[in-house]
């Protein structure tokens, strides 16, 4: 067990080192930051001053060491476009993304499991069939079209919900939250549905197929023969045994939610890290891109690591076979 964990941790560090190398190469070789910051009208002195300020005049190994040292301390230099510390900008944007991702994840998990159980128990019912066929459309619609569709329906036509932004936010010692104001909550509804829909359908279909599998097993038949209530059978006996693969998928999908937040945030002009990243790509703002890349890799690698180790705890067969 210990060697399995150590190997997984080693792999994770390797992934992070590779990503770090990519991030540093971006700094060093991509674009000319001077070009991006100064534009057409510039003097030689301007260029030299800026080069010194950004450390671009130092030799390659020095820059590399400076980058590694900075990255570990969370220091990614100054944004080419905004002229502010990247870490400061990211910290300012993080609460918006994390709140959106968390609400979407909770929504996807609760609704996904509930609908999955329902469609499995009433497998031939009209409502269950309707939910299943609608979910097919949900899977094939691209995220941004779902967002636009919701905006058109609930903001343009019905005028019930805001179509962009976070609404009013409350500052809780550096963490801004929209969860405490009415307009903040209203603004959260459409983006979180857009972001969570795909994951919800995924969880729903998985829970459904696992439930159908489990409901065929002998111990369920015995439980019925013993005269246990349907409720007890479905939730105490069946659902519990479907949860192992569901937990894995949920874990892995958390990373995907954070990545797909980029698209949702752009559609709804949600002031989070994803929108920041898209703007950074448009303006080739390398420090912001690199920092976002590092941050999101740490999140992904940590999630994958936790899921793998959890899984090995739950299912002992994996401890030896893991490659």
């Amino acid at each position: 067990m210990l060697s399995f964990m150590l190997r997984r941790v080693g792999q994770s560090i390797l992934v992070l080192l590779v990503v770090g190398l990519v991030a540093f190469s971006m700094f060093r070789f991509v674009g000319d930051p001077i070009d991006n910051m100064l534009g057409q009208e510039r003097t030689l002195e301007d260029i030299e001053r800026l080069e010194q300020q950004l450390g671009l005049d130092r030799p390659f190994p020095v820059q590399y060491l400076r980058f590694l040292e900075g990255a570990i301390q969370g220091n990614f230099g100054v944004s080419y476009r905004q002229g502010r510390e990247v870490s400061e900008i990211l910290l300012e944007r993080a609460p918006a993304t994390l709140e959106l991702a968390a609400v979407s994840a909770v929504l996807a998990i609760l609704l996904g499991i509930a609908l999955g159980v329902y469609t499995a128990i009433r497998r031939d019912g009209f409502v269950a069939n309707f939910i299943m066929s609608t979910s097919l459309i949900g899977v094939s619609l691209p995220t941004f079209l779902i967002g636009i569709l919701l905006i058109y329906l609930f903001s343009v036509e019905l005028n019930w919900l805001p179509s962009f932004g976070r609404g009013e936010v409350v500052d809780l010692g550096g963490w801004t939250t929209g969860l405490l104001t009415a307009s903040g909550l209203k603004s959260l509804i459409l983006p979180s549905i857009t972001l969570g829909l795909y994951q919800m359908t995924l969880i729903m279909r998985l829970v459904r197929s696992e439930m159908l599998e489990v409901l065929r097993q002998d111990y369920i038949r015995f439980a019925r023969a013993r005269g246990l209530a349907d409720r007890t059978i479905h939730f105490r006996h069946a659902l519990k045994n479907t949860l192992v693969p569901v937990v894995t998928i949920i874990g892995l999908q958390l990373g995907a939610i954070i990545a797909f937040a980029i698209i949702t945030e752009t559609v709804f002009q949600w002031p989070g890290m994803g929108l920041l990243f898209i703007n950074a790509i448009q303006f080739v703002d390398i420090p912001v891109m690199a920092a976002y890349l590092m941050l999101i890799s740490v999140m992904f690698v940590a999630i994958n690591l936790i899921v793998d180790i959890l899984y090995a705890f739950i299912d002992p067969r994996l401890r030896v076979a893991g490659k």
Partner: peptide, 9 residues
């Protein structure tokens, strides 16, 4: 390493 990240990213 590449599979750790969603392909759109």
């Amino acid at each position: 390493v590449q599979l750790t990240f969603p392909s759109i990213l």
